[in-house]
Structure formats: C-alpha cells, structure tokens
Nucleic acid binder design. Structure first.
Length: 608
RNA sequence: CGGGGCGUAGCGCAGCCUGGUUAGCGCGCCUGCCUUGGGAGCAGGAGGCCGCAGGUUCGAAUCCUGCCGCCCCGACCA
C-alpha cells in the first residue's frame, strides 16, 4: 500500500471511474481506425466484411480477433447496457478464472461429455486443465463453499469475460469465433418456484437489454441443449444471415426455434381398412420422388426409413436406430436426440447403412429390422397412417399397404419431424411464418442438475438439506456487435443504432486551410464534448470524398460537415446516417439539435 | 472430421496448365507539384523468404511429395 504514495500527485483512480472528467482526444488524424477501401478476401458475410473494412477488428488466427479501438468502443457500449440491466435486475458482477481444473469438470461428468469444443491441456505439473467455455462448474463450486442457508438466497452472480470454445468451424467473423466475449449469469434459489421468478427476472432484463441496444429481436422457446435443464428461451436478432430458423405464429405470441417447435395437431388415425401387403418391383427407384412418381402416389403415403448412429443415453456405445417419417417430412435431429436421451445422433452414410442392415439405401424398410436388433422409432404421423409404402428391405423392391404394429414393431413413437410451413401453430392453431435469426442470448432453467452432482446444498427453513435450484443466462456480447451490423447496414457501410455506435457524432473539417472553417470545427468539437457528446473530429488532410466515405463506413449516427457553406452561408450541415435526413444550421444550434436527436433515439428504443 | 477452394508487396488480384531474361497490375504507402462537398490528377519512389520443407531439373512462383495456414458447405453454440 505504501507504494501508492510514490505515485504522488496522481489521484488513485481507475479508467472507468465516472468521476474522472478527462476528455478523450478524438481526432481522426491520431486515431487508430485503419479503414479499408477493398474487402479482404476472407470475409463473406456483411458484418465480418464491414467490421474489417471499418477498422473495428483484425484477425489473429482462425476465429480469434483483436478488437481495435473503435471495435472495443462498441463492445464497451454493449457491456455497459448489459451491466446496467443485470444490476437493475439484482444480479451482482464477479469475475471467474478462465483456466479451470479438469477435476471440477469430472464432477459433473462434463469433462468427458463436453466434446472437442473444450480445449484441454496440461500445465507443467501435468495437471489436467481446460479453458472455460462456460462456468457452471466454477460458480457451483464457489457457491457450495459459501452458501449454507436459505437466508443467503436468492443469489444471482454474473461476469463478462472472454470465453474459449474450440469450435469445429469458426466462421462469419465475430458471429462465431472461438474466442468471444460473453456475459454469463447464474442464479441460485431455494425451490423451483423461486427459480422461476429468477428466470422471469432475467427474461425481462434481456428484453430491456436488446431493446436498449436498438435491435429487432424475438424471444423464442428453445432446446436446452448440452447445458441441460428443463426450460429455455433464446433471444434472436432478426436478420437474413441468421444461422437459426424460427417459427413465429402470426396470430398468437408463440415463437420457437425449429429445433424445438412442437407439432401439436395430432393427425387423425386413418379409418381406411388395412389392406394386404404387396411387394412391388421398383427398379432403380431410390429417392422418395422417384418411387412416388413410379407408383403414382403422393410422398405423404410413403414412409422413409433413416438409419442414425446414436451415442450416449443408454450405455456409452454407439448403436443404430431406424427413424420413420413420412416421405414429405424431414427428421429434426435435435428432437430425435432428446427423445432418445442421446449425446449425439448422426445420419449414417450409405455404406454404413448397408453394413448395418445389409440393404442399400433407398430400399430400406422397417420390417425385419427388429430381428436385427435395430431399434425402430416413428414419428406420430407414421403411426396415424394406413396402407403406406416402405422399402422392402431388398434391392429394387418396395412394399405397399404396410401398417405399423400389424407389420412391424416400433420401440417409441414421438414428435420427430421438423415443423413445416403448412403446420398450424401448436398453441392456437393459427398460421405460422418462418424467419431467420441470430442467437444473441439464451436463458436456461437448470434445476438441480449441477447442484446435485456437485453437492451444492443449503439448509432450508424446515431444517432439511436441499440442492440449490439453478438457472443460467448467457449473452454473446461480441456477437451482438456482429448481429447489430447484420441488421443495420446499407451499401455504404454500417448504420449503428445510436446506443451502440463507437461515437455519436463525427465532425468533418473540410477546410483545413481555411482559418474560419478550422476555427468553427474546433469550437464545435469542444462544445459538443462539453455537452457530454461523444465526438470524432475528422481533421485528416484528406479530400472530402474520403472523409464522407469513411464516415458512412464507420456507421456513426450523426455527421456534421463544416465546409465551404459555412463561409458562404454561415451554416454547417448535419446528416443522419440512417435515413440521410439533412439539416443546415448555424453552428450555435448544432449542439442542441444533436442532443435532442440523440435523446429522441434513446427514448424511441426504450419504448420498444 | 467429411466435401469444395485458396496461399504471389499492407489490401485485392494476374502469372502456374505449356519450367527459362529484371515476377507484374490496381488500390494503399513515401516525396514533390496540383487539387479540395462523395475514395481526384501528374511525376518520381519504397516495398516480395512467390506459405514452409523436401524432391525432379542445367534451371522451379510454375512440375512432384509432405507439412502448415486460411476461406466456403455440413455436425456445435453466446
């Protein structure tokens, strides 16, 4: 502590201290924002391209990026909103280590289960370790050591931290990096009811966060995936480049990820009398369309038999499962995985199918598979169907008039197909639409999965020891930046929402050799800063064209041009990046105008 | 990991198939002149282990082998 005195004269402060009123120098000529005229070849999607071109990020290696000053500024904007809303919701910030011991992960069994995304390594003492892709184990370890009593609950702890997941295929720049910034929060409650309240608080906080970020988004019901747990929502930014497909009811407020979207309208059991099975030659007809055309039937009367390699669930070995869906449907693998309680399901290759069943693909059917000890599962629709067509289990033949139960046995029947465009809403029966989305947030009700396996127990007021009921809540901070750009750009570059822009205003000095213009630009720069606005002054010795192009590319919401018109007409020009709206004002009015516009943008967002 | 493609100056690319003079173009960068409301013009200039390592050859950016890296399509996820 004594060391502090040696730094005499300097106040003890940190750079995020709000009390320190040092204005940031924001002269373009001295700012490291290396914009690019041409698009680097590595970038394909809009956000990646523009982040590189606008000098916001640079790549170090696959899926790993440096945030340059302006990129970091945007990240900080997002973080600030997230912190404010998390704190408002009663969560408390902490910071956990990124390096974690393997033994902790063994307690929940995830060291083995998590798969290759978990980057494992040994330290110099040969201790097994990993880089944290998420922190359920660490937080649970912390809390089990400190929380004993119901009086210490509820508790919600969060952090904003770099995560590392050794993604199979990183892509799209910040959208799917291996290293990325995430906010992860964990809630601890006494019982399920209280946990639901914590969950709802987070749901509400997330609504506020994404609204304040100026994003168009939608909360949807989601699969809880490998994190485990019972109940889950994803927050999706709506954008064409989204990696996920969502179904949204046009009549009620139902929305879900297609992975999850239930098919509720159970089809009516067919009343047709069952006919005698008939073996028909279908030479060379392997595809659904070819078989149907050949037999003169619609694809809804044919049943596909697909062989999946399934891992986990009952025993650790891989085993084959035959999945039956109608010819016009697709298997939804996430549903299949959940139904089988499997760790992984993978469609078998043609050769593998032959090795497993002895039948070439295209002629496979459910009959006789039980004899080979292959588990058969069927979609509900198949169970309702009568007299359908399946592969005969031998090359160049199919079977007509097949019926489930009479002709073959099925281990499980369930909701296994992907929801289709003509399916009705599972809630209200209304019409469904499909849209693309980017997952920027995911909340889970975990229950006691982790607290039980790690023995995180507390004593309740009835004196009994119970496992903590947990929830976990993630937000992809760096991904929000990419998603915001996917949703907000035009041909000239980024169009940042005011809340996320690295600075709110850029002043273009177009008359570096004209003392009047320079003086006016400098004065405006100082005045706007004094008003608390974030301003970049473009004082570079560049031609006007370059300055306009860069201002657009960077996506700064408001541009103030100080040029010849100041000398001739005494005005500066203020242009809105988003809609191109332009006003001319005397410089004295500029600050008020901008403050008013920025306030308006903020309140519009708040009302969303 | 499976499938496809690419590594040549800071960026975008040509040259490679059909080996052979000093490896070229556009942008950017430096100097000077000129120009100044949408990425100007002229003149001069700097900058290259042709991804790495072997091999074939009198001779390799170019042909062969191996490795490394990157991008795109699928399984994963914030």
């Amino acid at each position: 502590m004594a060391m502090l005195f040696f730094y005499s004269g300097l106040p003890f402060t940190t750079d995020h201290s709000p009390s320190l009123k040092v204005k940031k120098q924001m002269r373009y000529s001295q700012t490291f924002v290396p914009t690019l005229k041409e698009t680097p070849a590595e970038a394909d999607v809009v956000s990646h391209r523009l982040l590189l071109r606008a000098g916001y990020i640079r790549k170090l290696t696959a899926g790993v990026y440096t945030y340059l000053p302006f990129g970091l500024a945007v990240i900080r904007k997002v973080e600030r909103i997230v912190r404010e809303e998390m704190n408002r919701a009663g969560a408390q910030e902490l910071l956990m280590p990124m390096v974690q011991p393997a033994d902790l992960w063994r307690e929940t069994g995830r060291y083995e289960k998590y798969g290759a995304e978990l980057l494992r390594f040994k330290d110099r003492h040969d201790r097994e370790s990993c880089l944290g892709p998420t922190h359920e184990e660490v937080i649970t370890d912390l809390v089990r050591g400190e929380v004993r009593s119901y009086r210490q609950l509820p508790l919600n702890l969060y952090q904003i931290q770099n995560k590392f997941r050794d993604e199979i295929r990183p892509r799209f720049g910040l959208m799917r990096g291996r290293e990325f910034i995430m906010k992860d929060a964990y809630s601890f409650d006494v019982d399920d009811e209280q946990a639901s309240i914590s969950y709802q608080k987070m749901y509400d906080a997330y609504q506020r966060i994404f609204s304040r970020c100026g994003l168009q988004f939608r909360a949807v019901e989601a699969d809880s995936g490998s994190i485990g747990g019972s109940f889950s929502h994803e927050f999706m930014v709506l954008a064409k480049t989204g990696e996920d497909t969502l179904v949204v009811c046009q009549e009620c407020d139902y929305a879900a990820n297609v992975e999850k979207a239930e098919i509720k309208a159970r089809c009516l059991e067919s009343r047709e009398p069952m006919l005698a099975p008939e073996r028909v030659a279908t030479p060379g007809k392997r595809k659904v369309a070819a078989v149907c055309e050949f037999l003169g039937i619609g694809p809804e009367l044919l049943v596909k038999t697909l062989i999946y390699k399934v891992t986990g669930g009952e025993g650790q070995q891989q085993y084959p499962v035959a999945v039956l869906v109608r010819g016009d449907r697709e298997v939804q693998e996430v549903k299949l995985k959940n139904l089988l309680q499997a760790a992984e399901v993978e469609l078998a290759e043609d050769q593998e199918v032959f090795d497993i069943t002895g039948v070439p693909t295209g002629y496979l059917g459910p009959i006789g598979l039980n004899g080979q000890k292959i588990k058969v599962v069927a979609d509900w629709e198949v169970a309702a169907l009568h007299n359908f067509v399946v592969g005969a289990g031998e090359k160049n033949y199919h079977l007509k008039n097949v019926n489930m139960e009479r002709d073959f046995e099925v281990a499980v029947t369930g909701d296994l197909r992907q929801i289709a465009g003509d399916d009705p809403c599972p809630r209200c029966g209304g019409k469904l639409g499909q849209i693309e989305g980017i997952e920027v947030g995911h909340i889970f009700k975990l229950g006691t999965v982790y607290s039980e396996s790690m023995r995180a127990l507390f004593q309740d007021h009835d004196g009994r020891e119970k496992p903590l009921v947990m929830g976990c809540y993630g937000i992809g901070i760096s991904r929000i930046v990419a998603a915001a750009i996917e949703q907000n750009h035009d041909d000239n570059g980024i169009v940042f929402p005011v809340a996320l822009a690295p600075v709110q205003v850029i002043i273009l000095n177009l008359g570096l050799k004209d003392a009047t213009i320079v003086a006016a630009a400098e004065l405006l720069y100082t005045q706007l800063q004094d008003q608390g606005l974030e301003v970049l002054l473009d004082d570079r010795d560049e031609r006007p064209g370059s300055k306009f192009k860069d201002a657009d590319l960077l996506g700064i919401p408001f541009r103030v041009t100080v040029g010849a018109r100041l000398v001739k007409e005494g005005v500066v020009e203020i242009r809105h990046r988003r809609d191109g709206l332009t006003v001319e004002l005397v410089p004295e009015q500029a600050a008020d105008y901008l403050l008013q516009q920025i306030a308006a943008a903020d309140s519009a967002v708040q009302e969303q």
